[in-house]
Structure formats: C-alpha cells, structure tokens
Design a binder for these strands. Structure first.
Lengths: 338, 338
DNA sequence: TTGTAGGCGTTATCAC
DNA sequence: GTGATAACGCCTACAA
C-alpha cells in the first residue's frame, strides 16, 4: 500500500502538502493539488485510517453492538442507523454477538479501544450492566437502546413498552373482553417486565381481576408460544383474549390454536407486539396480526444524535432519555365479544 | 484514556514490559506481570487499536459489506460469519449499504484503508466490478460471495444457482408437469441469470419447449410476484407449475392466486428459492413452500477461510472458487399432474 | 528478566 | 503557498 510519502515524492511536494489536499484544507494551489491527486490515483493511495486516527484520536465511526439479528425489526433498525449516521458524515459498523456475552465484551473492547468514537448498545440483556459501567468509567461515549438502568447516568433510547401493553389491553377491553391473558417474554429482560407491568396496570385501570393463571411466563424462545397456547387451552377459565409478548409468540399461538380447532379471532382474540408483519408483508396469510408497532426510524435517529452529541462535546453534553410511543396497528386477529 | 506509559509509570516498569504482558509474551516475571495487570485494571486501560495496528499493520478484523439486510438468509449468514471468524481469533464487523453504491465505495475505502485486514463482499450487484478491480490493484485481501466475475482472479464463494434451478425444474417434471414457467429476478444480477439458465437447460434436458411467454422478467422488487401471477393468469396457455426466483416472489404469487380463487398446489404448483421458511418457522401458514435451501453455514466458513488464507499468506495463496449445492426442501406447494 | 531506541503513517504547529 | 518537525500509542529488535 502506497503511503503519503510516496505520493509526496512522486508529486514533488512535502508530506504536509499531500495531507492538506486529502483533508480539503486551504493553502494549496490548484496546480499543486492537481499533481497530488494524480500521483495518488496512479499509486491507488488511500489514507491509512490507523495512522490518521492515532494522531487525531477520532475515527468517524460509530459501532453498534447487537445481541443477535433475530427479529426483522432489528435489521430494520440497522438500515435506519446507517442512514442517520451517513447524514453526519459518520461510518456505522455492526457486530453480531450471537447472544454470547463474552463475544460482546470482546467487541466492546475493540470499539472502545480506539476503533470507534462511540457505541450504540442495542438489546435488553441485564448483563450489559457490567459493560456499561466499564464504559462509564472510561468516559467512553455511548447510548443504549431498549435496555434501561435508571441508576446509571447514560443515554437511554426507549420504546414505551409499558404504555404499549397498556394500550393493547385497553383495546381488547374496548372489544368487551374481560378475560384477557398475557404471555410474557424473558423476565430477565426489562422489555418483558415493562410489558407485563403495563398489562397489569391496564387491568387495574379497568377494575379487572389480575388472575395469576392468566399470566404465563416464558423466555420467548422458539416453541414457547405453542406451549403457552396449550397451557391456556387446558384452563377451565380460558381467556377470550391474549396479549402476547411479541409477534412470534403470537403467531405460534395462532398456529397451535388453529391446529386444535380453535379459530382466531372467532374463538379467541390475539394481539402481538413489534408489528414485524410490516417486514413480512409478502406472506399470503389471510390473517393479519393486530400488533403494537415501534417507530424504529425515530429510535435510530435519536440514538445516533445522542451518541454524537456526547462525542462532539467530549462527554460534556447532558445524557438524554428519549421514550417513543408504540402505535396499535389493527389486523384481523381480534373480534369483539358480543 | 490511559495509555501504556501511564501503566508503566504506575507499575514502575518500562513500556516494553507492559507491552509484553498485554501480548502474552515470555520474559516477564509473574510478579511484574501481576503489578502491570493491577495498574491496568485500576486505570481501565485498553490497548489502543489504532496505534497497535499502525505498527503491526494488522487489525485482526474482517469487514463484511452488505448491499442491504433484506432477506432473512442474509442475517443468517451474518451469524455464521461471526462464528467462523471468532474461531480464528478475528473480529467481524459489517456494514449495511442500504443498496447505495456510493455508500459501498465509502465503506470499502474505510476497510481497505487499514481498518480491516480483509473484506468479504456479499451480493450480486454488477457495479461491484469497479470496487473489485480497485481492491485487486491495491492487492487487498478479499472474497466475494454470490457475485461472479470469471475474468477476475478473486476468491469466489458461490451457490450453484444454475444447478438449483435445474433440479427444481426436474423435480416439477417428475410430478408430470410439462408447462413449467419461471419468474426471474433482476437480470442485472448474476443470480438471476444463473437461475434462468438452469431453468432453460432443464427444459432442454427434458426435451420441453422453451416458451417465451412462460418466462416473466422482474426486478424482484416488492409487488412483482403478484404482478407476475396476474400475468400468468391472463395467459391462454397457463402454466401448471412455476419456479419463482425466490421465496418472496413465490409467497406473493401464492397470495395473489389464492385471492383469485386459484388454489396452490391443487391448481398450480410453485417452487421457491432460498428456503427462508427456516427463518420464519413460527408462522402459522398451513402451506409450506417447496424451496431450494442454501448451506449458508458452509458458505460463511468458506468465505472466512478464503479471506484469511489470503491475509496470512500476504496474497501468495491461490484464489479459490468454491461452489455449494442447493438442496430441495419439500413443502406442500407442489402437486403431481395426474 | 528488563529497558532503550527507532519507527509505523498521519496530522498539526510553526517557521519560511 | 509550502515544508520541516514533533507528536500520537504502540511494538520490536537489540542491548544491558
């Protein structure tokens, strides 16, 4: 790889001049600039990022750490993040930790070790606390999407899951349902407890009984939707409506119910969460799931802005907590009780 | 951020010793090592990647360039790539170009400019030729997945799309279909022409007529499956079976046909390509699409190996072309003609 | 076992 | 408008 000194020699100028050309700085004649650019083209010169960021201590890169790209809404977020970054002249690179915490630590060290100016931490693994505390001690700029640590002074970009679940239950109650159940996600994750909380609060709003047998705890793994559906079917006091932790669980439940001859929405109504259907619109499923949609474009924009303001202010910017509301998208998976 | 010299001072040793500790080198007593590690912990020291890679001219990073994370098989690949890399002690970062060619060039310069030791270029955009030629001139290590430039001396990791389409047609012919149509993808992309080619060759194998009206050219955008389905329905000589360029098109067609009262597979058989169903197994669709599955785990492993061998041999390793076969996964979207 | 010195490719400061 | 020169943080002979 050609270096700046090769270009300098070839163009008959000094390193300084070459550097100025590549940084669009003033103080270099059009003629000289031309010579330099020509030499650079001939030698396929690209400035060395490592050397550059060593001296400027900036990389113009923001790193994003994913637990795993399991849901279509995550990939949707990825696209929005890249768009938001490029608007500020920043690069955005991702890593996929395959749900492995050690891998995550490895990548965080990689980014924080000078490979990125800041990081966006996406996910709701509570083990991220250690990572976040380390970042704070190092005064490294970062934002957190989805996770929440109220005692830590960090940028929080959040979806109002509590309110989302609450709205969903109110919607079902508006259809005259009064036996509304909930299938939780992994309670290790804040998202799950927030949604459960919203569910319970809504029942209380409505003066409805919170029945323990109507709350089914799962870890949101593949297959647990079907298991939850079976459990509900065995109940004497079967619910007439269910709020699922997410769309995948909802779809699994629908599948199981149909298989058992229980029709959705005729016999039982279901609301999902995430609205991944927008990503799967090609599927010829006659039933479309009613679900809570999340504004991932706004989330991405907010995360990039928060991280960037921390970077440019060298940590002086106040941390932000931004919460975005969900929106109920009606499909045909819910029916009123007559 | 603390630097090596701070640690050295604190531990009362020289920079060299600290460096040795962090590179697990011999020639440092257990006691000294302990002191250094303690000082490092106290100051939250992380070696600076830029400085390190400036002097070693290695980053231990492989970059992956995606056109866009549109299909579930792409995210599946991302997971496999990370796994393959970590097995070799390498980091894997990727970027999402949102289908923008300038963005892609930008990221390539970023990676090739010393931010990664090699790159994996995923996709089948023919405009990648320029990028690849530049990389070759710079003698930068890289591999290409899915794309193919036979005149360029590069690592090719390929899916045998030609053979896949051919097998699919033979499968349909085995079910006594003799009016088999094909919906293409974007013919700018090699994948599309390969599959079309396989389709045509299979027809010739079977002494069947290649009917132009049975070949429908699309760009694989959202909605073109439905459009293709409509076009076929208006045909006098309607096909009894269709090989779709990919699963998304296939699903869209099925949706349109059903909407028009044409049942799949009773009235018309359909084979897709990609087998994304493995990623969408939660969906309660009673119909499962027969589709050609691709071994993304092997593809990922091969791509990482090819790139790494180029990196470690400093370009001396011979370039490889590895082609992986697809596998027909039977669903229930095809019926025999009686 | 430990330390010294030189250099990786770039930017930034300050002369000319 | 142009060019020396000193960093940036680290690794690596080589010397002690």
């Amino acid at each position: 790889m050609a270096s700046i000194i090769d270009i300098a020699r070839m163009a008959g100028v000094s390193k300084t001049t070459v550097s100025k050309v590549f940084n669009n700085q003033y103080g270099v004649s059009a003629e000289t600039r031309q010579k330099v650019l020509e030499a650079a083209r001939e030698l396929h010169y690209t400035p060395n990022q490592a050397a550059r960021s060593l001296v400027t201590s900036r990389t113009n890169v923001i790193g994003v750490v994913y637990d795993a790209l399991v849901s279509p809404i995550y990939t949707e977020l990825a696209g929005h993040l890249e768009k938001a970054c490029s608007g500020y002249g920043y690069h955005l690179v991702f890593c996929n930790c395959n749900d492995n915490h050690e891998t995550k630590v490895r990548y965080m060290n990689y980014f924080a070790g000078g490979s990125a100016d800041g990081v966006i931490l996406f996910g709701s693994d509570h083990r991220d606390r250690d990572i976040i505390e380390t970042l704070l001690q190092n005064e490294y700029p970062f934002s957190v999407i989805e996770n929440r640590f109220d005692d830590l002074n960090v940028n929080h970009i959040l979806i109002n899951n509590f309110d989302g679940a609450r709205k969903a239950v109110h919607y079902l109650a508006g259809l005259n349902h009064n036996r509304i159940a909930h299938v939780t996600g992994n309670m290790q994750h804040r998202v799950a407890s927030d949604r459960l909380n919203g569910y319970i609060t809504a029942l209380q709003d409505l003066n409805m009984l919170v029945r323990p047998e109507h709350i089914l705890y799962t870890d949101a793994a593949i297959g647990c939707g079907a298991a939850a559906a079976r459990a509900f079917m065995e109940l004497e006091d079967r619910p007439t409506a269910i709020l699922a932790f997410n769309d995948i669980i909802a779809y699994e439940m629908i599948g199981y119910f149909q298989q058992q001859g229980l029709q959705v929405p005729e016999h039982i109504s279901i609301v999902g969460f995430d609205h991944i259907k927008s990503q799967l619109s090609f599927l010829p499923v006659s039933m479309t799931l009613t679900s809570m949609a999340q504004p991932m474009d706004l989330v991405a924009q907010a995360a990039v802005e928060a991280t960037l303001s921390l970077i440019t202010s060298k940590g002086a910017a106040p941390v932000q907590t931004r919460i975005f509301d969900t929106r109920l998208v009606e499909g045909n998976s819910c029916w009123p009780v007559l």
